Simulated assay, not measured.
Amino acid sequence: MTKAIQSSVQVGELATGQALTVPLYSFIGSESSAPSVYIQANVHGAEVQGNAVIYQLMTLLEGYQVLGNITFAPLANPLGINQKSGEFTLGRFDPITGVNWNREYFDHQVDVQAWYREHQHLTDNALFQAYRSMLVEACQKRLAQPFGISTGHRLAVNLQTMAHQADIVLDLHTGPKSCKHLYCPEYDIDAARYFSIPYTLVIPNSFGGAMDEATFCPWWQLTQYAASQGRDFSVPVSAFTLELASQERIDLDDALVDAKGILAYLSYRGVIAENVSPAKMARFACYLRDYKKCHAPKAGLIEYCAVVGEPLAAGQPLVNILRIDLYGTDQAFQAISLPMDCVPILHFASASVHQGTELYKVMTKVFALPSV
């Protein structure tokens, strides 16, 4: 039986001098040539289900032959997790700066042309090792820069340092009220067929601030530049964001479903010795440019009519807006619909909204993904 080794990493300090630490669990693989993996959860305080998935996945791995090193970082943001207001967990935005915790990662902006010119004589494996070392060292320099960095950026760069040491990176999140969906870079769209997730957002191969992009973008840039110089290899690093339904929720049975989906992907990549087949299910996708935000045209009390994860035909009600202050007028109630077919993916958690609140995110121009 394979057992995880427990440790921790310090990601900051409280004003009282207490260390902020994140627990780590590591499975040591038996083959150095197998891909290594980094999986984190709970960067946003209320998005706790990823921890349950990590628990179930680690439990499953005890019965498998692990070939590649796997590192888990549950409870990855101790500040956000403990940011409570009454019965609710906040923890989506850094309370000091107001920045989204998942937009604090370091954009390396590597001068790929200059770096490649200096290292092009290396074999592919040596080239990848040198590039990885450069990314890790850049993060370490960022943490030690003389003018310091913000609390949130320090947390993010510490997590990013661990991610840069892996070949596969999975960042586990949830939505407010959401169905499961996957953020997948365009170059790696075939990978979406292995996870137990029905909807995939195909994102550009560019940096937008999140962990998955911070991980794969430098490697995509290296791969593209090398190809322009007549040297072809596949992007060496894969990174995805898994949105595991709704926040403020722990469901261990559902977590087991998602853990098995991750296990199927790790099997496909050769991280474990055993063959694990992906779940038989329909999977659909749309490009990020076709993922639309629907904002409240006016303030009021909201009845969310569209069910997340279920197709919605054009003209069918998305929400009903109640304005009790306008009772007795034709403005007291208004049904809102969209002019195109879509699939609602997530909606705002509160029934009380300001004008302009993002009510829903919906996929349009949806297409089916082929099965494995």
Rank of each mutant, 00 (worst) to 15 (best):
123 T>A: 14
132 R>V: 02
124 D>Q: 10
176 P>V: 05
153 H>Y: 10
181 H>I: 01
139 C>H: 03
140 Q>K: 13
175 G>I: 00
163 A>M: 06
138 A>D: 10
167 D>T: 00
176 P>A: 10
173 H>D: 11
128 F>M: 07
113 Q>D: 13
174 T>K: 07
147 F>S: 15
113 Q>K: 15
174 T>L: 08
177 K>S: 06
123 T>Y: 08
114 A>Q: 15
130 A>E: 12
176 P>Y: 10
144 A>R: 12
150 S>K: 15
168 I>R: 00
150 S>I: 08
140 Q>F: 04
146 P>H: 12
118 E>P: 04
152 G>L: 06
164 H>Y: 10
153 H>W: 07
119 H>K: 11
133 S>D: 13
168 I>N: 00
134 M>K: 04
125 N>A: 14
120 Q>T: 07
171 D>C: 01
168 I>G: 01
134 M>F: 05
113 Q>R: 13
142 R>C: 10
119 H>N: 15
123 T>F: 09
132 R>F: 02
150 S>N: 13
130 A>S: 15
150 S>C: 11
142 R>T: 07
159 L>V: 08
130 A>P: 04
129 Q>F: 05
115 W>L: 11
152 G>F: 09
167 D>G: 12
181 H>A: 02
125 N>G: 04
148 G>V: 12
156 A>H: 08
151 T>Y: 09
139 C>F: 05
163 A>H: 06
132 R>Y: 03
135 L>M: 06
135 L>Q: 03
134 M>A: 08
143 L>Q: 08
182 L>H: 01
172 L>E: 03
152 G>Y: 11
163 A>V: 02
172 L>R: 03
170 L>G: 03
139 C>I: 00
154 R>S: 14
141 K>Q: 12
151 T>G: 06
112 V>Y: 07
136 V>T: 07
141 K>G: 06
127 L>Y: 01
155 L>I: 07
141 K>I: 06
131 Y>H: 03
137 E>N: 14
165 Q>M: 12
139 C>G: 03
169 V>M: 11
175 G>V: 00
153 H>F: 09
170 L>C: 05
178 S>Q: 07
